[in-house]
Structures are given as C-alpha cells and as structure tokens.
Computed example of a mutant assay.
Amino acid sequence: MAVIGIMSAMQEELAAVLAAMPHEHRITVAGRDFWVGHWQGHSVVVVLSRIGKVAAATTATVLLERFAVDTLVFTGVAGGLGAGVRVGDVVVANGFVQHDMDASPLFPRHEVPMYGRARFEADAELALQLAKASAQVLADAALHLGAGTLADFQLHAPRMHQGLVISGDRFVSASAESQVLRQALPEALAVEMEGAAVAQVCHDFGVPFAAVRTISDRADDTAHTDFQRFIREVASRYSLAIVSRWLSRRQPA
C-alpha cells in the first residue's frame, strides 16, 4: 500500500492532524517523532518538520528512506509577498526557490550547485489536487473557522493562489527585506523557511511533493502580534480541512 507523508511546520497543526488519526503509533528516529497510522483510508506518516532548511531536509530524508513514503505534502504558514496575497489566504506552491542560495560567481544567484537549476517544481497533479481542496475549504471558510474568527482576524473572502514559494534560513518580517525579495524574485507569492529544501530532497528521491501554506502575515512591519492564536484558530484548521478533503477524494493505491 502507498504511504503518504505529511509534514507540519507547527506543533498545533501536528496535534490537529493526530486527533484525526485515532490509532497512530510513534516511532522516534533522529530525535524526531514520526506518527504512523491511517487517515481517510490511507496509510500516513505524520511528523513535525522542525524549523529551517537543514532540519526540514533531514526530516524529509528520514520519511523517504525509513518509512518508504511515496507522496509528501507539507503544510504550514508563510509570509505573503505577491500582490493580492492577503492574510488568511492559502498558497499552493507550484515551484520552490531558495532565496538565500548564492554561490556566485561560480554559479548564478539562486542556482543550487551541481543541479543546474534554481527552481524545483512541485508535482503538478498533486499540487492541482491540493489547490482544488484548498479552494473548496476556503469557499466554506466560515464553516471551518467560525464567523467570529473570520471577523476577529478581518479575513474577508479568503482566496487560494498557486505559484512560486521561496525559502530561506531567516524569518522575514521587515518591509525592506520583503521589497528586496520581490525585486530579486518577482514571481514569488510567499516566503517561508523549509519548502525549497524539502522539494530538493524529493527531487533527489523522485517522490511527488507539494506544499500548502496559509498566509499569516505580509512578511513586513505590519505582521499581527497574536501569531500563536492565528496558528491555532486559522492555519491549523485550514491545514486539517484541506488535507482531510484531499485524502477523502484520493484513490487508495
């Protein structure tokens, strides 16, 4: 049977997913807890990615090697960069770039040495499936979040976007840095700290990968202060609903 890996960036997301897996069991490898079980009729392994590219790459490698995962989905939050990408929207990545990769002058800026590329693509079919699930969940946002939560966070008609997500080993929270990233990578819709590294690992193993990121802020000086509440009441609920809907419509292999 096919095994689906689900990496969550935040502990709150992981807890929400585990609550939907009543018979999971834990296996600890490389200091990480991997939860093995079933969800929506599929064999799944769920794990906290940890923060940053190296930590996430290690987690992904263990998933693929030790647990023979043959499809990998990442959920988490990100800062919005693209025009029209607002707090409470969801970005489904169709490609990933490490914005802090720079081995010039030996290689062009952003290109990963020895790969001949800067961009690692998401699996097109997997990304399409997640995009459909995301759009359906956002269409019923009040059902999943509650009208009070939508009002508290001023989330008006949240939207799903598909495009480039960029990753780097620093938390982007200043307008000046966001502007630099937009100029260097104008196609980028969102910025986070893990996705491009996981995409590179999945490229090496030939395993389909895609990521769903809820926009928690605009990666600038206007970031809201109640980040943990946003994770708990918005991002984790989106992630749970999106992955659950995707799995429920995916044919068991």
Rank of each mutant, 00 (worst) to 15 (best):
A219K: 13
F67P: 00
F205D: 03
I215Q: 07
V85A: 15
G82T: 14
R170V: 04
T61G: 03
V172Q: 05
P22M: 15
N94Q: 08
L138W: 10
L150G: 05
Y238K: 03
H110D: 01
F67W: 08
L130Q: 03
R229Y: 14
A199V: 00
Q200A: 07
R232E: 13
A127M: 06
D102Q: 03
V45L: 06
G88N: 11
P108G: 07
Y238T: 05
A2E: 07
R86M: 08
I51H: 02
A211I: 01
V234D: 08
I231W: 15
H99D: 06
H25C: 06
Y238P: 00
W246N: 06
A235M: 10
D204P: 00
T75D: 01
I51Y: 03
A147Q: 13
E12V: 14
G148F: 13
G37L: 14
L72Q: 02
E233P: 06
L18Q: 09
A60E: 07
V234P: 01
L240M: 11
E65S: 07
A142P: 00
G146P: 05
I27R: 13
L145W: 12
I166N: 00
V92C: 07
A219G: 14
E111R: 03
I4K: 12
F209C: 09
R229N: 15
A151P: 02
F120C: 00
I6Y: 05
A219L: 13
L189E: 12
V191Q: 08
